[in-house]
Design a protein around this nucleic acid. Structure first.
Lengths: 216, 216
DNA sequence: TATGTTATTGACCGATCCGGTCAACATCCC
DNA sequence: GGGATGTTGACCGGATCGGTCAATAACATA
C-alpha cells in the first residue's frame, strides 16, 4: 500500500483559497474532460488554460482521478439543483415546457458551456479507471430527463396526421442542431453572457415555427 | 536528406496484391482517422482491426502520412464519382432532391460508414503535418454540396408563414439527428446491407412528415 | 527437392508524451 | 526575522507510438 496518501475520497479542494482561481480550474478541466474523455484528457492543457502551475493542480486535487470525481460531483449537483428548482413539470404544452427547459439549459451552459457534454461523456464513455466511482443511476436519470423532457405531454394539441413521437424527436433534433450553430469554428461552444438572450430567442423562432406547423 | 526513400508521392499500394486485405486496411484506417483525427490515430489499432501485421501496413503505405493521403484521395474520388454520376440537380422539389441525396449518401456509407466523417475531419481539422498536402478546394465544395444541397429549390411550394431557410435547416438537422439513431451504443455507426433500406425508409417517414407540414 | 523471390510477421527501438513529485521560491501574517 | 501557507516548473519514470528489420512463410520456377 505504497500510495496511501492518495486514498482520501474527497478532493482536497479546501486548499484552494482563491475562489476565482478554483473556478478557472473547474472550467478548464470540465472542458478538457468533455472534449477528450477521461483517459485522453491532458492535465498540462488544463493547467495551461487555467493559468496555474501543474504543481498547484495536484496540490488542489491530488490526482487526475480525484479531479475527475470532484468535477463529476460538481456537475451533478449543479444540474440537479438548477433543474429541480426551476423546472415546471405541470405545464402540459410540450413547446412551453421545452422553452423553459432550454432556458435552464442555456443558463447552465453559461456557467460552463461544456457541462452537459461532460456529463454525457461521464455517462456514456466513463473509462474503467473511474467507472466504479461514479453513480450512473443519477446520471441516467439526468441524461434522459434533462435532454428530453417529454413525459405527460398533452398530445391532443397536435394536428391529425402528425405523429407526436416523431414531432417531438424533430424538435429535439432541432434544438441539438441549433446549438451547434453556436460552436466556434475549430472546436466547440463559446458564447458570452450578452449573447445568451440572442441564442435563446433564435432557438425560439424555430420552436415557434414547429409549433405552428405541428399544432392544430 | 536522410529519408529519401520515403519521399515518393503516391503510396506503394501496388504492393498489395490481395484486394480484400487492402480493403480491410482501408476500412479500418478510415474509421480510425475519422474517429481520432490524424495525429491521434493509432497505427496499432489499424493493423489490429484490419487483421494484418504492423510491418505489412508500412510495407504497403510507407508511413502514416502516406496512408492518410492515400485514403484522402480514395475518399474524394469515391464521393465525387458517386455524386456526380447520380445526383439530379434539375429536381426542384427540395424534398425529392433531399431523398435522392440521402440514398446516395447511405449507399456510400455502406462502402464505409465513416467515409463522411473522415472527409469532414480532413476538411475541418487536418493536422499541420498533412494540411499542406490536401486540396481543400475540392473538400470545401464537397463538404457543402454533399451535406446540404439546397441551391435552386422551388420556394413557392412552401406554405405562407413558413420561412424556407429555417425549414431547410430543420430538415438538415433531422437528417443528422436521425442518422445518429443508427449509431451503435459505444461509438459510431454500424449497420448492414440488409438494414439500409430500413434506414432509408425510416428517414423518409420524417421527411414526409416535414414536407406535409411545410408545404402548401 | 533445391533455389530464388515475394509476402508477412512481430519483437524491438528511440523519440515523445504525460501523470505525478519535489525542492525552491513567493507571499502574507505575527 | 520566522513560520506558515501558496505556488512554481524542471524533472522523473513509465507508457505510448511511428517506424524498422531480421527472420520466417508462401510461392514460383526448374
Amino acid at each position: 500500500m505504497k500510495d496511501a496518501p492518495k486514498k482520501g475520497g474527497a478532493a482536497k479542494t479546501g486548499r484552494a483559497k482563491d475562489a476565482a482561481k478554483l473556478e478557472r480550474v473547474i472550467d478548464a478541466a470540465i472542458t478538457e474532460f468533455a472534449l477528450h474523455g477521461y483517459k485522453k484528457a491532458n492535465t498540462n492543457r488544463i493547467v495551461e488554460k487555467a493559468g496555474i502551475s501543474k504543481g498547484l493542480l495536484f496540490h488542489y486535487f491530488g490526482s487526475k482521478k480525484e479531479l475527475y470525481l470532484y468535477l463529476y460531483d460538481y456537475a451533478v449537483r449543479m444540474v440537479v439543483e438548477e433543474v429541480v428548482e426551476r423546472f415546471d413539470v405541470t405545464e402540459r404544452d410540450i413547446f412551453k415546457r421545452w422553452k423553459a427547459g432550454a432556458r435552464i439549459k442555456f443558463a447552465l451552459m453559461r456557467k460552463n458551456p461544456m457541462l452537459f457534454e461532460f456529463i454525457l461523456d461521464a455517462y456514456l464513455r466513463a473509462s474503467d479507471e473511474v467507472k466504479g466511482s461514479i453513480d450512473t443511476s443519477t446520471l441516467s436519470w439526468m441524461a434522459w430527463s434533462s435532454e428530453r423532457a417529454l413525459a405527460s405531454a398533452d398530445l391532443s394539441l397536435f394536428r391529425d396526421g402528425v405523429d407526436p413521437r416523431k414531432a417531438l424527436e424533430i424538435v429535439y433534433w432541432c434544438q441539438e442542431g441549433y446549438s451547434k450553430k453556436w460552436l466556434n469554428p475549430e472546436n466547440r461552444l463559446d458564447y458570452y453572457e450578452k449573447r445568451q438572450e440572442e441564442m435563446v430567442e433564435g432557438l425560439f423562432e424555430y420552436l415557434d415555427l414547429l409549433k405552428e406547423v405541428f399544432y392544430k
